[in-house]
């Protein structure tokens, strides 16, 4: 991936990647809240989250994180095997 980058380029790249990571994380966080809020909160007779809704949010966040971890693993695996296959063809 980063073959052929000098040390300075590598540093610049890392700085950019860190910015990207923060952005990525904000997106993931926002999507998580949106998904779980949409699925769990539907009682607007009160302005405070009920214990039922709160429990649902907690489970939704756990399950979503588990989903994300699992898909990240699959993503990395498949990506590695696709890349290997492509390299072989060159």
């Amino acid at each position: 991936m980063d073959q052929g980058l000098t040390a300075a380029e590598q540093r610049e790249l890392e700085a950019r990647l860190q910015k990207r990571q923060v952005k990525e994380f904000m997106n993931v966080f926002g999507n998580l809240v949106d998904t779980c809020f949409t699925a769990c909160v539907d009682d607007f007779t009160s302005k405070a989250i009920s214990s039922r809704e709160s429990g649902c949010l907690t489970r939704c966040v756990s399950k979503s994180m588990a989903t994300q971890n699992r898909l990240s693993e699959r993503f990395a695996e498949i990506n590695a095997s696709v890349t290997a296959e492509m390299q072989g063809k060159r």
């Binding site: 966080f29 998580l32 809240v33 779980c36 809020f37 909160v41 607007f44 302005k47 405070a48 989250i49 809704e53 709160s54 949010l57 907690t58 966040v61």
Partner: peptide, 11 residues
């Protein structure tokens, strides 16, 4: 109000 609260909770 609930949306803000959910942000805090999830965070």
């Amino acid at each position: 109000a609930k949306f803000f609260e959910a942000h805090t909770t999830v965070s």
